[in-house]
Design a protein around this nucleic acid. Structure first.
Length: 153
DNA sequence: GCCAACGTTGGC
DNA sequence: GCCAACGTTGGC
């Protein structure tokens, strides 16, 4: 099993939004970055665990856990001209962008903030999230990192 | 709102 | 293939 961290802006779609969705499940659409696409298309498997990260907000940090419930499939918003994620270079015959479905698992009692994670830089030195200039919306997390961060709650 | 870091685009 | 210009991300 693999572990991931996925960023989302709580003003747009936060963990409470995921929890209140039908089946507590949502397609992770709108990702328009090739590295992130490749991870969703090739690497994220059913049952993989996900840290749900809130970005661009008062206290950025990990707020809970989700799970991959459907593996990579074409992101149909990419060929919908009405969608804000529309990409004229993508179409149904030759989809350029992919997504996975994620399901709510739990919300942490408190936010494990980016600042707090930085305080553990000794242990989490390889955490992609903490690397300078990291803007990837999906990051791999090792099992050790996963267990350690879960222990912080 | 600012700005550093990074990705993408397109002319050459 | 280079690189300047531009757009986006995301912390602060």
């Amino acid at each position: 099993m693999n572990y991931w961290l996925m960023k989302s802006e709580p003003d747009v779609f936060g963990i409470d939004d995921l929890k209140s969705r039908k089946d507590q499940t949502e397609p992770w659409d709108g990702v328009r970055n090739y590295q992130a696409r490749n991870m969703m298309r090739d690497d994220m498997k059913k049952g993989d665990q996900i840290f749900f990260y809130h970005s661009n907000c008062d206290v950025p940090g990990i707020v809970g856990i989700a799970e991959v419930v459907r593996e990579g499939y074409p992101d149909h918003t990419s060929w919908d001209p009405e969608s804000k994620y529309y990409d004229p270079k993508s179409n149904e015959e030759n989809p350029r962008w992919f997504m996975v479905d994620v399901k709510y698992k739990k919300k942490f009692k408190r936010t494990i903030s980016l600042n707090e994670l930085r305080e553990h830089a000794q242990v989490l030195s390889d955490l992609a999230l903490l690397r300078k200039g990291n803007r990837l919306s999906i990051n791999p997390v090792s099992k050790d990192q996963w267990d350690y961060i879960c222990g912080l709650e």
